[in-house]
Design a protein around this nucleic acid. Sequence first.
DNA 1: CGAATGACCAAGC
DNA 2: GGCTTGGCCATTC
Length: 110
Amino acid sequence: MKDATSDSFFKQVYGLVRQIPPGKVATYGQIAALLGNPRGARAVGWAMRACPKDVPWHRVINSQGRISERGRHPYDVDLQRAMLEAEGVAFEHSGRVDLSIYQWLADKGD
DNA sequence: CGAATGACCAAGC
DNA sequence: GGCTTGGCCATTC
């Protein structure tokens, strides 16, 4: 997965996730929409599945403001929550984040 | 090219 | 608030 494929949809997702500032979170649907695929939330999730280490995947959550469990590796989920809390993101009692406050607003130019 | 998968989303109960 | 159903998209075999 490189060469010509490096220009895949994935790369766009990674590039966008890297732009997410600390203390903020973005949903798969929003990222997909920013890439021009408001319905490609699944594709974004698929890209995150191969999330490189230089990508703050922990700042990416679902529309419910909740962390997606990959069906396994619950450790990563617990880690993600700790990462966000460390950046200043508060979690609800149900383990959810208030998107109304912490959802990242794509700022094109500062 | 066709079928299967997946860290999704919205709507309904 | 939580579970289920249908739909969309991109990647992989």
